[in-house]
Design a protein around this nucleic acid. Structure first.
Length: 354
DNA sequence: TACGCGTGGAG
DNA sequence: TCTCCAAGCGT
């Protein structure tokens, strides 16, 4: 099985930017970006990020704000803050040399069991296993293991299998081959067993029901929210817009947001915005017009945002709930550390290009 | 151990 | 338009 998979990987692996070399730093960046994120989404972010932060040192000495601005739109922003912190830690504790073993890697912020195994095996050829969503699927099918994909007992068994399988030559390629198989052939739905190099020994395939493995876990209930978003422009400077940071935001720690309020359907728009702007920013609402709505999902939340373009007056003074607030030129919005959640609203108001 | 974190592609 | 879920992690 090991031999077949390695051969298949050599013949059919996708050419990906982080496979051009075995530089531990670029492997690390790619592995963090790929957490819970598909390859096609990551590629342009990876290219842009590596161009701006080509070495660990470049990343370590950058500001968190700038690192986040290069992560803007990729999601799970905590990853970027830990990666940045991790780079600084490697710089200080290991003189800029990324550790080559699982144990030390795992102690770096943002690096868990999976990522420590991935870096140790891919960048340093250590026989260290990896278990991600792909590996759980591939191995639970190959060995016809019972249990759902988030269940502790199943995951533990998969780690044991992966640990045994990774022993031997080319551990990094073998780990990547397992994941590549999961991503391209051994898919959640409609697996392509006809082209699978290990189908002959796959127990789920022999039972003719590979897509029954692993079982899908119970899912949380979806919550629906409505949100008013304020695009505030000063009366005398209409080319600027207000961005804010809460001290303890529910989402998007460290990123800029547009001022907003979560509302009930019956709430009066103008009244809510007027009171909110006065209380939080000491601003007077002079006039408003609707600029469009958009939907966005965040984990198990489905949020409908309603944007309003507002003209505001008065002197900016922020409430203690907020850490910062600033008016920025509209032309600089593209370089700000904003979540896509806010970019959608800005695009609809034609303050950002599509 | 369970939960929450972002986003976009596929079906 | 909706659901599902991806190269996980820290708490």
């Amino acid at each position: 099985m090991r031999r077949e998979l390695l051969q298949w990987f050599q013949d059919f692996q996708r050419p990906l930017p982080w496979r051009k070399n075995q530089n531990p730093y670029s492997i690390w960046v790619s592995e963090i970006m790929l957490q819970q994120t598909q390859v096609a989404t990551v590629i342009p972010y990876f290219e842009r990020f590596m161009k701006r932060f080509p070495s660990l040192q470049d990343l370590a000495k950058a500001s968190e704000e700038e690192v986040l601005s290069f992560w803007s739109g990729l999601g799970y922003y905590r990853r970027a803050r830990f990666l940045h912190r991790g780079a600084q830690e490697v710089q200080n504790k290991y003189q800029g040399k990324i550790p080559n073993n699982f144990k030390d890697l795992k102690n770096i912020p943002g690096i868990g069991d999976y990522t420590a195994g991935a870096i140790a095996s891919i960048a340093f050829q250590q026989a260290s296993p990896v278990v991600d969503g792909n590996v759980i699927r591939v191995l639970s099918r190959f060995y016809a293991l019972q249990g759902h994909a988030k269940e502790g007992t199943l995951i533990k068994k998969i780690w044991e299998k992966a640990q045994a399988l990774v022993q031997g030559p080319q551990p990094g390629d073998f780990n990547q081959a397992l994941m590549e198989l999961g991503a391209t052939l051994c898919r959640v739905k409609a697996p392509d067993c006809g082209h699978c190099p290990i189908a002959q020994n796959c127990q789920a395939y022999q039972k003719a029901k590979p897509e029954d493995y692993p079982q899908s876990p119970p899912k949380p209930k979806v919550l629906r929210l409505h949100r008013l978003v304020a695009l505030c422009q000063p009366q005398d400077k209409t080319q600027e817009i207000l961005l804010v940071k809460k001290k303890k935001p529910k989402w998007f720690q460290g990123l800029w947001e547009l001022p907003h309020e979560y509302i009930q359907a019956k709430d009066e728009v103008q009244e809510v915005l007027q009171q909110s702007l006065k209380k939080n920013f000491n601003l007077d609402l002079l006039n408003l017009r609707a600029s469009g709505s958009s939907r966005h999902g965040i984990t198990h939340h489905r949020i409908e945002s309603h944007g309003y373009l507002l003209e505001v007056g008065g002197e900016l003074k922020i409430d203690p709930l907020y850490a910062e607030a600033k008016f920025v030129p509209i032309a600089t919005l593209n370089q700000q550390a904003l979540p896509n959640f806010e970019r959608k609203i800005l695009k609809q108001a034609q303050l950002l290009d599509k």
